[in-house]
Amino acid sequence: MATRAAHKRLAREYASISASPPPFITAHPSESNILEWHYILTGPPGTPYAGGQYWGTLIFPPDYPFAPPAIRMHTPSGRFQPSTRLCLSISDFHPKSFNPAWEVSTILLGLQSFMTSEEMTTGSLSATEAERKVFAQRSRWWNSTGGGSSQRTIPGVATTGSNGRGFGAIRSGDGGKKFKEEWPELDEENWKWMEENRIDPATGRAVAPAKTECNPEASALRRRPTGSGAGIGEVVEGAQVARDAGQGFLGRNKLYIAIGVLFAYVILARILGEAEQ
């Protein structure tokens, strides 16, 4: 339970960060426990995390601000191990280096700065830029489905399988329940986004719409002659047209070519005979 001083300090900081949130950052305390804060870092433009939705928690000690919080990021990012305590100078790994003047916004700005660097520490990961971009693209799906463990479906999008294996196959296992409790509006936005983009809730992959028409060539082959005049002559004529279309220039004009070659041979033989006389 938070001390009276901690409660008063965190309530004031919530009012401050709500009125003037730092760029790409939003945060609030849990309704049931003011020491449990939830944040969303939006990946800044120009980084591999651009557009990503990174959800995490700050767990403050009862004597805050005289001790720092435990910092975790739950959304897979390719930068931090999901739901693992991070060893930072602003986290509970280094209580002696924490400055009581630092606020929640200071802590989250520090986390954002560390995330966009390449410095390694306990709880951090090494990944390629391409991998981190994929995590960013899948972050909204992951948050609202619990990594594919949600039972909710999207009309017109058939579930194609499980995300239990392969790249980004990290499950929270709660079906996105905790995220929805803390971020109901964002959760609905995420589901709307998945529906508009036909994202399979089980795998996070886009599902192509079913094709209802064949290509023009196949459609033409399916057409049948109409009317009472369609008889054997038209079928033969159609077959002849098809054969002509399939033959090349030589095949269609071989008789004329043979005559031309023979004529050229006769002329050449005459010219050579006159030259020998």
Results as ranks from 00 to 15, higher is better:
H7E: 09
E36I: 15
D187R: 07
Q247N: 07
K211Q: 03
S144M: 04
S172W: 04
N33G: 05
S139K: 09
M120F: 06
P68S: 11
A158N: 01
M1I: 15
R205A: 08
S20L: 04
P201D: 01
P82A: 08
E234G: 11
T47E: 09
Y54K: 01
G168H: 05
K133E: 14
A2R: 11
F167K: 01
R85N: 15
T160F: 08
L86M: 08
S150F: 01
Q240E: 02
G51D: 03
F114Y: 13
G43E: 14
T128E: 04
G56R: 04
S113V: 03
A242Q: 03
L111K: 00
W191H: 05
R4F: 05
P22E: 07
G43R: 12
N33W: 15
T121Q: 13
H38A: 06
T75S: 15
F263Q: 05
W55A: 00
Q112S: 10
E129H: 06
I34P: 13
I107H: 06
L272Q: 01
E13T: 05
T106A: 11
A11L: 04
S139G: 03
E188S: 08
R171K: 06
E217G: 01
K177M: 08
E185D: 00
R9G: 07
G233T: 12
L186G: 10
T106P: 09
G78H: 06
I170C: 09
G166R: 03
E181P: 00
T106N: 14
G231S: 15
W55L: 02
D63I: 14
